[in-house]
Design a protein around this nucleic acid. Structure first.
Lengths: 221, 221
DNA sequence: TATTGACTTATTGTATACAAAGACAGTAAA
DNA sequence: TTTACTGTCTTTGTATACAATAAGTCAATA
């Protein structure tokens, strides 16, 4: 794996915690590389906003409650628009892929043991559904920007906090979104997606005071 | 100026034309630097989508008509949302800054000689107004992403195609947006901004067949 | 004890050298 | 004329060395 993806994944999975400084020499040794490719990877991650300047170098960005609110507002705006456009522009192939993603999602939810590996699988198939919706909107630039908004460590961790009921509920909304896109009902798709993402947002915000994860976030000024 | 901003500006101003390959050694000589900082700048620009892989290296990205349509759709979605939020969250300082920007805009429009330098000034004050609207929405992540969507060479050139009447019309819409934000009317601000950006979009698309600029764009496949 | 200052150290910023791999040109064969 | 091949050459990918500077340390002074 290249330096960019290695660091990115480490941040998303929480191996590199928010506020942690990323020394070039350290990473270079960790990846058996020289500093040059490490620096390039860091520059890219900085452009994406995943790492921020920290003491003549960079560190993993931490997200405040305010950040989470803002990001979910933005994501909701973009993805609900995407759902609406998907209901207009989707192809038959998109519908098949959406249905597949949801079937896998259903399977993962029922089989889950709630261990980290299982959560990762749930995240993966959930992302596959959302990704397909955005892809079906047929706007490459929209796709590009949504992928940058969504890639935030938060999204990964949030699934730990879903109850079985919430996971089930989430699946049901996926099915409603799918039906709306299939039947070419943009408004219904848009509204359902908006609700869906705001449910996720509320769930995350509700748990932000939880002591087990509070160290991952910086309090607002 | 650092390598990143130098290259970025050269692309936006059209000094580096779409499709042009950006050789590291060449840029290094041009800026009296070694290849290392050049490579880092290129990686950042690549992450932003302003340059794309081209023959084992990178080249300036070209935008198809389809790209322009997509970008304006996206920009319209984001900026009209921003205008709505600005009508809710704006401070008194925001209002002063918006009014200042519009006054300068008015001045530039009346004084213009339609030379490159004058166009640059118009672009600058127009950007200042739009920037302030987005800033007044009080969502840093929204601001971040809009700035990436808007920074496209297109925006700069589009002002060459405005007639005096269109510039005047553009100013009038700015004033309507300002009033809506001032009076805390989110829907009115949102709709006005949406119309405003779509007018810009139509203007650009109308001129895309123009022979004087057609070389700047690649035909759609 | 807190604060300032010089000193030491660690880490980044930049340049350069070498290795690797496409791109290109020229040639030969179909 | 076109295609396929081969060798050369340009340009990128990576490593490393050195310069610059910010950070940390410790002692002296208020």
């Amino acid at each position: 794996m290249d330096a960019y993806n290695y660091i990115k994944e480490a941040i998303i999975l929480g191996k590199f915690e928010p506020g942690m400084r990323l020394g070039e020499e350290t990473l270079a040794k960790e990846l058996n590389l020289s500093r040059t490719p490490i620096r390039e990877a860091i520059k890219q991650l900085e452009a994406e906003g995943l790492v921020v300047p920290l003491k003549r170098g960079v560190g993993v960005r931490h997200f405040t409650k305010e950040d989470i609110r803002e990001i979910y507002d933005l994501r909701s705006l973009l993805e609900s628009y995407a759902a609406g456009q998907a209901a207009i522009n989707r192809t038959e192939a998109d519908l098949i892929e959406l249905e597949t993603a949801n079937q896998l999602y259903e399977k993962e939810i029922f089989d889950t043991h709630r261990d980290p590996n299982s959560i990762r699988n749930i995240v993966r198939v959930n992302s596959r559904f959302h990704d397909t919706v955005v892809s079906a909107a047929k706007n490459k630039h929209l796709y590009f920007h949504i992928s940058k908004v969504v890639v935030v460590p938060m999204v990964f961790r949030s699934f730990y906090w879903y109850t079985d009921f919430q996971l089930q509920q989430s699946l049901e909304v996926h099915k409603i979104i799918f039906e709306a896109i299939k039947n070419k009902e943009p408004e219904r798709a848009r509204i359902a997606m908006h609700e869906h993402i705001f449910q996720g947002r509320d769930n995350v915000l509700k748990h932000l005071d939880d002591s087990t994860i509070s160290h991952l976030f910086k309090e607002e000024a």
